[in-house]
Every structure is written in C-alpha cells, then in structure tokens.
Nucleic acid binder design. Structure first.
Length: 860
DNA sequence: GCGGACTGCTTACCT
DNA sequence: ACAGGTAAGCAGTCCGCG
C-alpha cells in the first residue's frame, strides 16, 4: 500500500493561547439540578459564559451528564511578593480590565521553612491571570502559582477528587463516599507518624470508592481524499465526510454512509447486527453524528484531537451549520465535546509510562493497528482500493472496524482502560481530559500541588527549586548524562543451577520514604541538618521536617506493596473487588516507577538534581551493603543490577537470615523475586537467560529478542530456547546439544540456498527522527528510508523502516525495492552467528563448527 | 589509497 | 517531553604505511 503524506498547512495556525476552552453553546449544555444522586466527577473546566468553574458529573442511574457551577465565588488568582502598596502604583495591574483585587496572605515556604507574606492578585477570569499577551502575570517578575490552570486551582482549593463519587444536595456539591474501615490500616501502620497515617487513610478513602460503569461511545470517521497520496487536512476540511461509525456501551452499532456515485458492493457477514444508514446529504449525516456525540458521557476516539473531531467541526462550519449547533470545541491541540467529555486514546496509549509500566511494552508503535494487534490480537482492515472508489458496504465495514477496535480498547479485560483512567484521575487529581493527555511529570506535579494547597503551603517555581537543589556531587558514567545512576555487578559467566533472585520491592520509592528525600528536604536550609550526610555523596537531608514526596510516594508505595497487591490476590474477596484492587496497584506502579525520574528530569517542574542523585547514590549504597551481608554469610553472588542480587544455591535458613539482616540494616524490604532452575550468564551485563522452576524462560537483553533482528534469525533463536527449556540438570545439555546443532545447520542451509523470503530477512528499525534530522551520521536504516523517499514513500519519526542488506555500494535496500538475488549472505550469516552464539556459547557449541562440519560443497 | 584503532552516533535493551 | 547503565553495529576520523 502506498504511504500517505501529510498535507502542508499553509495558513498560519491561529494560536489560541487560551488555557480554558470557552464553551458558549447553550444547546448542548447539560442540566444543573438542585439535587443529584451519586455521580462520578468526570471533569472540571471553566465556563466562559457563566464566568465560573464548571464541574461535569456523570450519573450512572440515568446515564446522563450533569453540570454543577461554582457557588463559592471562587476566582482565579496568583501570588507576588510585592506589597499591596507597591502594586497600587502599577496601573498595568490595577487598571487591568480583569483585575479584581488584592489579598494579603501568609503561606508556608517549604524551602525557607517559614511562613512568608505574599500578595494574592485576584482576577475576574482565567485569561486575565495568564494565557494572553497582556495577562496580569506578564506584568510581574516575582510570581507564584501563576501557571496553574484554573480548573486545577479550583480542584485543589475545593479538595475535589476527580473520578470519585459526588452528590448535589440543595445546590451544594458534596462527597458521596462509602464509608471505609481503617482498623486494619491503623494496625498495619501503627508505627508511622500521624501525618503519614493520615496520607495513607486518604488514599484508601478515595481509591476504595466504587467505580460505576460509564456510558460511552467510540467514533471513527472516513473522509474522501483529494489525491491518493495526500492525507486530508482537518483544518481545511475540503473533502466530504463519507462514513462515520459509532459503537456504544449501550449496544449501539451504527454506521452512517454518505450516498455517492459509488457501488453499494456486497455486505459482509461481519456487518450483521450493525445498523447501516445511507444518508443522502452530508449536512444531515453530520447532524445525526452530532446527536450521538452529545448523547454519551464519554466519546472515545483514536487521534480524534488531531483529526476526527476538528474535521467534523470544520466541515460542519464549511457546510453552514452554525457553530452553536456543533457539540465540539476546538483548542490548540485538543478537541472537546459537549456536554460530556472526549478521550483521545492515541494520546493515552502514547504516554510512555502507560506503554512501559501499564502494558509492559507490549506495543512499541502507537498506531491503532500496532496497539490493536498487541492488546486485542486483531488487526485493522485494509482497503483494497483508493478510498474514494471503495464500494459503500466495504467502506462501512472498514470504518465500523476501526470504531469497534477503539471501543474494544476501552472495554477489553473487564473495562481495564476505563478503570485505569478513573483510578489515575483519583490519584492525580486531574480531570479525565488532562489525565489522558499529559505526561507523568505533570501527574506528579498535580499530586504534589493538591497536597501543598491542602496544607497551606506555597507551590514553588521550578527556578526556585533548582537554585538550591541544583548542585551535583557525582559524575555520570555515560557521557552527556548529569549524574551517576545505578550499579550493575559483573556477572560470573557460566551455567548456574539453583539460583535465587532477591530484590528490593520498589527500591527508589522506598529510599524516598525511608531517607526522607524530597525537593525541599534535600540540602535543606538548617545548619543543624548539614551533618546529616547521605552515604557516598556530599548532600544532606533534613532531620526536622518530613518531605512531601517522602509522605506521598512513601504512602503510595507502602499501600501498593502491603495492601493492594496482597488484596488483589485475596481469595476471600469477590472477583470485582480483587479486580479493582489490581487496577489500583497497577496505577500506583505507574506513578511510583516514574517518581524518581521526575526529580531528575530537566523538563519537570520538580527538577531537583540533588534529590535525584541522592536516590541513586543510596541505591548503590544499599546494594553494596547487601553484598557485604551476603559475603559475611558466605552466600555466592552471581550477578546484580540496581535492586537485585542473584544468589547461587543458598541454604534456606541462611537466606532467611540474610533477608532479616538486610532489612534490619537498611530498613527496606527485600524479597525473593524468583527461583531459577538454572541461569546462564556470559561476561556481559544486562544479558542472560534463565529457566524458572515452572519451566518458563526469561530472556534478558540477548540479541535474539531485539525487535530489529530479522524474523528468520529470531525463529531459530526461539527454537533453540525451546530446546533449552527441557534442560533440568547439567547432563541434559549434552542431549540438547545435538538437536540445537542440527536445527542451526538446517537454518543456515536454508539461508545459503536462498530459501528465506525477503520479509523474513527484513531488519526493522525505528526512525526516532525524521530523515532530515540525521545530521551527524547516516545510519543504515536512514539510508534505506532515503531510498524509499526517492520512490515517494516517506518514513516519519516514530515509524519503522524495513530493509535488507544487499551487495550494492550502499549496502542496504528497503525490502519493497530489493530482490532476493542481491542479498548479502555473509552479513546474514554474521547476524545469525552473533544472535545464536549467545545461546550456543554456554552449551559449548561453536557456531563455526556447525557450518564447517557438514557438506561443505553445497554452497559454492 | 587502504585498513586498523579509535571515537561518536544510533537503537534497543535492563533496572 | 521520568532517569542512568549496557551492548551492538555502523559511520566517520585519524594515522601510518617505503
């Protein structure tokens, strides 16, 4: 299939610097009742029309969205250190049309460790605080909390928990929480300080609330194309919308097709049960779609922010539909719907931490097809012809299938995604639109800011944190990195039977808790804390005050490990509860795993290099101490990486003693993670394989598992792995050896005689940049991409190039352009060798000997 | 003019 | 737009070489 190009955007983008989308339409406004029963808080936004914060609630009883407008008189604001008197002299402030007034406040400054006096500047609307050239914040140098979005500020000040149940009584918005019993928790954490216990209780209180099913719909649209290679531009919306599919949680299965001068074609049985409506004119088609969009609480799309919804909106405008009759509001890079909410699954799945920690890297490209293949085991349909010419029933099927996939991404595995989103909202205090669109550093920022506001503490500026926490005392091993990271212990090469792996359960979060690491406690201001040095570095940590991250991250860690993980496997609980607990513990995992990284990320608002390098330094200290203890008990350490140690054939009681000693010394839990029948190490770090007691094989870092290795090498690699599974004792290797040799030889023969197809020889490598951005060198995959571009197919950043090695000057060719007879065999034999050797070497098989031992004449 | 030693770039992995 | 550490393969450079 021909690759598509993106349209050139000719017009200047109209930069709507607006932080809050002003939704002016009244047609699609939801009711705002005086009383409302148990409803989930889905979103908070600012209503320009009412000049108030707007809370969107979902009532599971009737499946409808309800609005609640602020009745507390809450206004946007920020702080400055200028006195009111000084400010009065500044007409840009006092005469600003959005200026409302001043207030003098006292707030606790976490780094100065004292209360400071600030002037609160109150504004009429969010845009007057920030977002425009002449917003109030632009006229002041020293300012705090001026970049917080108004809806977040509102959530923080009212202590709202997005994703949690609320009710309205006599116009008042109230928590509608089920009572949670804390006796068990109080027992579990009785040695912790009261502040910490309080944090634990608050987490449980919000996380254990029921999650109600939410009425939702998945939508996908198809658009006619101007040319076969140019993707339609949503901004221009020049071509017709020819199909729209909707799949709803209420059983809706609907496809609207625009009647055009194209064959109906034949209706596939896959469309049985799907209501296909052929609509005569585009305007009615759009109106019907709008009516569906506005009747569901959540609209899910895949890339709807950047394509489907702006296209529908702009097309509707173009066809003369008045904008107040369109239930869509467009922002800079976001599209919202009315009266409910829109979630763009592309953005959610694109989030790196979701990809890595929630889905364990099951998908590595974030297009719909890759994700569907990895998570649902299904693929997108392929159009057999240019979309403009495809028979209508076929188009209907294609469109329906995409909406169906989108719907199932939300609903597979017991609505996992929907549950995950709700739990993440509760943890991060972000509205559904934000939590599904922004990255983890902003999640954590929101968690922290919510807590700070509740404690009447100032939310510090990035620069302020960096000014005192920016010093580094270590040097990174890798050039270009800022500070030293984890320690990896050289493995002892060979085959080792009976290996026990112990590891620290979430090491870095534990360190943050136990050592009181936080951006404000590291290198704190107190003279008397300076002696409280951390091991191996020149930083010290506060003795007087518990750090906010120590509390937040520590409590999340403890609850995950000690409560939710345990409860998710508790057979005494019903399945639904266990499932919710499992969702909670995986949501926590996502956040915990990223917490340390956020401190070390320059782009993060909590960037605190001193804290980040202290965490890794303590990590190294921990592993060193643990090795010392192991040695004192005569345990043999085979390998270790960051937070784990591989111990050879430890005696049960010695291991027990070891665990006790480590926990006593370091105050951090260490557990047996797994037991291997045998593990095979080379001299390489991060590179081994092992067979566990139940026969599963772990392969770490070996070449054969890397995704760019050609399929045919991979197949052979995994066939050998299967053979190694059978090995239970040292003697078994001898038997496996013959089988492995034969297999390898057979594959080699196939390769040499040209019987491996081009696609199995393909090397697939991701382009992390666009072609023109490779300025320093031109790697092979880029060479291949350049050849493809010459043929009119452009590979963009994020996509992968498939190429083969050939005997030409360039050395490579994209698979599409290559012939089998020009393949450079020697390169493929080399690849086979390097990949397979990592398995053969330990079995004492020489790759070369396999090739040489048989029928030499065959290949010349 | 060419090959080996070296450094640097790039990707994909591990924790 | 969370971190650093490691392996592998290739690109590019420098140096020596009658």
């Amino acid at each position: 299939m021909q690759k598509l190009e993106y349209p050139e955007e000719i017009e200047e983008e109209i930069e709507t610097e607006q932080e809050e989308l002003r939704i002016e339409s009244t047609i699609y406004e939801a009711e705002s009742p005086k009383n409302l029963k148990t409803s989930l808080l889905l979103s908070v936004t600012y209503s320009g029309k009412h000049g108030k914060a707007l809370v969107k609630l979902y009532n599971p009883e009737d499946g409808k969205i309800y609005y609640w407008y602020d009745n507390t008189g809450h206004k946007p604001y920020f702080y400055t250190d200028l006195s009111e008197e000084e400010l009065r002299k500044n007409p840009s402030i006092t005469l600003h049309p959005g200026f409302l007034g001043f207030d003098i406040v006292e707030l606790y400054h976490p780094i100065l460790d004292k209360k400071i006096k600030l002037t609160k500047i109150i504004a009429k609307d969010p845009l007057s605080v920030g977002g425009q050239k002449n917003s109030l914040r632009e006229y002041l140098k020293n300012k705090w909390e001026a970049n917080i979005k108004y809806h977040s500020s509102y959530i923080f000040d009212l202590g709202l928990i997005p994703g949690a149940p609320y009710k309205i009584i006599d116009g008042e918005l109230l928590r509608d929480f089920k009572e949670v019993k804390f006796s068990e928790i109080e027992e579990l954490y009785k040695y912790e300080d009261p502040e910490y216990l309080q944090a634990v209780k608050e987490w449980i209180n919000i996380l254990n609330q029921p999650i109600y099913p939410i009425k939702h719909v998945a939508i996908d649209i198809e658009v006619e194309m101007e040319s076969p290679t140019l993707l339609p531009s949503p901004k221009k919306a020049a071509s017709k919308v020819i199909a729209v599919a909707c799949v709803g949680s209420d059983g809706l299965k609907k496809v609207f097709i625009l009647r055009r001068n194209v064959d109906m074609g034949t209706k596939s049985p896959e469309l049985n049960g799907v209501d296909i409506e052929v609509v005569d004119d585009e305007v009615s088609l759009l109106q019907k779609v709008f009516s569906i969009i506005s009747s569901y609480a959540i609209v899910f799309t895949f890339n709807g922010d950047n394509f489907d919804l702006p296209y529908l909106y702009n097309r509707a405008i173009k066809l003369g539909i008045p904008k107040e009759k369109i239930p869509i509001a467009l922002g800079k890079e976001i599209a919202l719907v009315l009266p409910g909410v829109h979630v763009d699954l592309y953005k959610f799945f694109h989030n790196k931490v979701i990809q890595i920690y929630a889905f364990a890297r099951k998908y590595d490209e974030t297009d719909l097809n890759s994700i569907a293949k990895a998570l649902l085991g299904v693929e997108k349909k392929v159009l057999k012809d240019f979309i403009n010419l495809v028979p209508l029933y076929e188009l209907a099927l294609y469109c329906y299938n995409d909406a169906w996939i989108t719907y199932n991404l939300v609903n597979f595995n017991n609505k996992l995604i929907l549950n995950l989103i709700i739990i993440l909202m509760r943890i991060t205090k972000l509205p559904i639109e934000d939590v599904t669109r922004i990255g983890v550093s902003n999640w954590i920022k929101s968690i922290v800011a919510f807590k700070l506001r509740s404690r009447n503490e100032l939310i510090l500026n990035k620069e302020e944190i960096f000014a005192t926490k920016g010093t580094l005392s270590t040097t990174a091993i890798i050039k270009g990195k800022k500070y030293q990271g984890a320690k990896v212990i050289d493995p002892i090469p060979g085959i080792h039977f009976g290996v026990v792996v112990v590891d620290f359960a979430s090491l870095y979060p534990s360190i943050i808790k136990v050592w009181n690491i936080s951006y404000e406690t590291i290198d704190c201001i107190h003279e008397e804390c300076k002696s409280n040095k951390l091991p191996g570095i020149s930083h010290w940590v506060c003795k007087k005050r518990r750090g906010i991250l120590s509390i937040l991250i520590g409590s999340l860690r403890d609850l995950r490990v000690g409560f939710y993980k345990v409860k998710s496997k508790d057979p005494n609980l019903d399945q639904q509860t266990r499932f919710q607990y499992d969702v909670i513990q995986s949501s926590m995992k996502v956040i915990l795993n990223a917490a340390y990284g956020v401190l070390g990320a320059e782009t993060s608002d909590l960037y605190s290099p001193a804290a980040a390098e202290s965490i890794t330094a303590i990590g190294r200290y921990n592993i060193d101490k643990t090795i010392e203890i192991a040695q004192s008990l005569n345990l043999e350490i085979l390998y270790g990486d960051t937070d784990s140690l591989f111990i050879k054939q430890p005696q049960k009681d010695v291991l027990q003693k070891f665990v006790e000693m480590v926990e006593k010394e370091l105050k951090i839990d260490i557990d047996v993670d797994k037991i291997y029948k045998y593990v095979v190490f080379s001299q390489r770090k991060k590179n081994y394989f092992g067979v566990t007691q139940n026969g599963t094989v772990d392969i770490k870092g070996l070449l054969g598992k890397k995704k760019h290795i050609p399929e045919f090498v991979k197949k052979t690699f995994y066939n050998i792995v299967e053979m190694l599974k059978e090995v239970n004792k040292p003697e078994d290797f001898v038997k496996a050896k013959e089988k492995i040799k034969n297999l390898t030889y057979e594959q080699y023969k196939l390769l040499k005689t040209g019987r491996i197809s081009l696609s199995e020889l393909a090397i697939k490598v991701t382009m992390n940049k666009n072609i023109e951005d490779y300025s320093k060198t031109t790697p092979q995959h880029v060479k291949a991409a350049m050849q493809l571009k010459y043929f009119g197919v452009e590979v963009k950043a994020g996509q992968s190039v498939a190429y083969v090695k050939v005997r030409t000057q360039e050395g490579v060719k994209p698979v599409q352009l290559a012939r089998l007879d020009e393949i450079d065999m020697t390169k493929y034999v080399e690849m086979m060798k390097s990949s397979l050797e990592q398995l053969l070497e330990p079995a004492e098989i020489e790759f070369e000997s396999i090739l040489g031992s048989n029928n030499l004449g065959l290949f010349m």
